[in-house]
Write a protein that binds this DNA or RNA. Structure first.
Lengths: 239, 239
DNA sequence: TTAAATATCTGGTATATACCAGAAAAAGAT
DNA sequence: ATCTTTTTCTGGTATATACCAGATATTTAA
């Protein structure tokens, strides 16, 4: 270890943390390169990286491809009960949202999807995939499955913007019940590439099953969020 | 890199993952030591550790202090709306729950707590802290704040087992509204030690604000969960 | 038989170094 | 000015090695 007592990587992390908290480094600022850091703090790149990964886990910084390390900014507050639409509630938080459709196709339910959507195997489904984020930074990948049997003609609708809007407007389907399932996981290589994250990056997996007033499943979502971009807020009313 | 193409650490991770998925390594089994692994898979400890950390992030394995790496077992399903009590719902999942009180004392609200609990600064509070887990493995640390003004005599109650039970029974306080706030974070050194995790270990932070029928805050919780031990399940009823 | 001392095994941290691949900047050609 | 090529800078991965500290197993002493 170099100058200073205790664990070197913790010392480096503390130094950077204090620069961020003091406002010396502002959101979206680039940190010194790993080589510069290592030299100025009298340690090696391996140890500096240990410290950077620590701050990354804390959600204070992120890395972009091979461009460098940056200070994170404000997280997206997300309410999965979804009274509001993504583009709206993100804008309301003072951020600039974007949404890009990656995929839209008809498929048939396999065993897993059939059981999640409570349809028979081989039932027709619409699969949607989109990448969403704010302020130019990707935040999550969403895969949506819609049962075509319960939403006839849904494939022809414009689902680019908001599925919820179409559901409410054209199908008059109220979101009566939303079942949430939230777990911490890791991004696959493909997901990571889309989210500008290293493979295996820690993510929050949110599974949503939406039922209409009749108790039928009308939507099944799989969301993979960058852990540093999300804050989930839910309000449960037991009245 | 050694034998095989591509990224070595990914190759090691894939090998171990397959052993786990094939059932060659069962839950709670110890993995070969890092030195053994490195030798048998023709790489170095640094690279093996990279792979192990990857599987740790995926929630497939965990490390216990300096005893080794182990295969994780079944996660705890947690419903923060909390109709059920920890000791009950964990037992219902076929696990053996435990709960250890770490702290119980009277404090006065500082600025942050006052605003969270909607009481005046210096209002009397009861602070509780407990460590909970299942099958001998710690899963989370919970810090509870109770406003003594709204729950007179609460300090004298037996809160070891369940705060909810006391609330419902002795105070007739229904949980009318629960506000949840869920974020991914990192454990402090102290928390990590209690949860048998390395410092900075990825955790799920769950903040709960509980209101009674009158809309008053009667409980504020701060939970820090090991990311590998938790699966949150919430049901939202928009009726 | 029990308790204390010791050796060994485990992961945790650190140094020094090397090469690769993608991104960005600089230099050159049109 | 604009496009193309080259160089440089960045993080990503990997090797080899060393020593530390806690947990465990073994040995030794009472």
């Amino acid at each position: 270890m170099a100058a200073g007592r205790g664990v070197t990587s913790a010392r480096v992390a503390a130094e950077l943390r204090s620069r961020i908290e003091r406002g010396e480094l502002l959101p979206e600022d680039r940190l010194p390169s790993e080589r510069e850091l290592s030299e100025s703090l009298h340690t090696t790149r391996v140890t500096s990286r240990e410290a950077l990964k620590q701050l990354e886990a804390e959600g204070l910084i992120y890395r972009s491809n091979r461009r460098g390390w940056f200070v994170t900014s404000q997280r997206i507050n997300y309410n999965p009960s979804r009274a509001a639409f993504f583009m709206d509630y993100v804008a309301d938080q003072g951020l600039v949202p974007f949404s890009r459709q990656l995929l839209k196709k008809r498929i048939v339910a396999d065993d897993r999807l059939a059981s999640m959507l409570e349809v028979s195997v081989k039932a027709p489904l619409v699969e949607l995939q989109r990448l969403r984020g704010a302020n130019g930074r990707p935040a999550y990948i969403e895969t949506i499955y819609l049962p075509e049997g319960r939403l006839p003609g849904i494939y022809e609708c414009d689902l680019e913007r908001s599925v919820s809007a179409v559901m409410l407007g054209d199908y008059d389907q109220q979101y009566a019940v939303v079942e949430l399932d939230i777990t911490v996981g890791a991004l696959s290589a493909g997901q990571a590439a889309l989210l500008d994250a290293p493979p295996g990056y820690t993510c929050l997996c949110v599974r949503r099953v939406v039922r209409n007033a009749a108790g039928e499943v009308v939507e099944y979502d799989l969301e993979h969020w960058r852990h540093d971009s999300l804050n989930i807020q839910v309000r449960l009313d037991n009245s």
